[in-house]
Design a binder for these strands. Structure first.
Lengths: 173, 173
DNA sequence: GCAACCGATTGCAAAATGCAAGCAGAAGAG
DNA sequence: CTCTTCTGCTTGCATTTTGCAATCGGTTGC
């Protein structure tokens, strides 16, 4: 999957970066799922990526400048992956993509609630989320008011839907 | 390339629709380039898609509900492809994608001027463009004021940059 | 009549993907 | 210390997708 520069068109070049089935899934799991380690990404995503593909994509995303890799000080064998600013600025695109998919595709309710919330939150919420990601991955100071993180908010909404569905499936006697 | 529903996540489903190298390029050429025929798409795109891939993708995009196909009354062999509302609502995503690519990737100046203009125009310009596309592809009445179309505006900017570059390359004696 | 053009299709080589197994080394439990 | 588990990642191999070039039956313009 070489970046063979088929043309200098911004859309084409963007597609050469994540116009495949897995790159954006990996970034999604890092951004929204907070995953930082190889195994987390391997076992964590619902879609079930193969380990060789994951290794290849991580390498590729690093070469493209979307990720960096560092040793985890707490474990000599662990590598920790970080998003770069380039990857963090994908948040608005992911938000739009999620919103579009939610409208037009057969999404599952519990998995689309996050997209809905992110859409409703709009650019201010995206900015807050990006600020949090910068803090988490780049070490920059948080300039937003303390409180529940955007990721925690989204995650809580997801859990609430899952719980509600479980309740509906087996209602209290 | 089956839509095998790896998961009901909106982002994942979106990727199963256009998470490949060509689908979005075809849509880009239809949306921004105004191309409606097989040959126009085949020869028109700078990236040079193969005819079998183009045929396959057009079929797939039709099955997904992004395109429709009709006979061209002026030519018994010509088929005319139209965007559906589902495809037209990709405009904001394409605008964001173009803006992102323009910042982070080595785009060429003449090809990125359109992305820049579209970004500067913001949501109002996107809405106007979508309205024009609906008129063109779905036959709905235009509800915007008459005047130069968004596509014509973008195209003119592109031509201006090309002309300026040519002038720079061989300045007047 | 005849070349150019229409939307594709075919055959084939090359590349990407998916799957399962395995690797060396480090950490944790007992 | 030993045994098991976990770490990121690699290997081999079958299947699928892609890219390229040639071609097809039919239509159109001249």
């Amino acid at each position: 999957m070489p970046l063979d520069r088929r043309s200098g068109c911004p859309i084409n070049l963007s597609l050469e970066v994540f116009g495949d089935r897995w790159s954006l899934i990996i970034l999604r799991d890092m951004i929204f799922g907070g995953r930082r380690h190889f195994r987390e990404l391997l076992n964590g995503s619902i879609e079930g990526i193969a380990s060789n593909i994951l290794a290849d994509r991580l390498k590729r995303l690093m070469e493209l400048g979307m990720l960096t890799k560092a040793d985890d000080p707490s474990h000599k064998q662990k590598a920790i992956y970080s998003l770069t600013e380039m990857a963090i600025t994908l948040v608005p695109i992911l938000a739009h993509l999620g919103a579009w998919g939610r409208i037009w595709l057969p999404t599952s309710e519990e998995l689309s609630i996050r997209a809905e919330l992110l859409e409703k939150g709009g650019p201010p919420m995206w900015e807050k989320f990006m600020d949090e990601l910068r803090h988490e991955h780049l070490g920059t100071p948080l300039d937003t008011a303390p409180g529940p993180s955007v990721r925690a908010t989204l995650q809580a909404a997801y859990q609430a839907v899952v719980a509600a569905k479980a309740l509906n499936a087996s209602p209290a006697a």
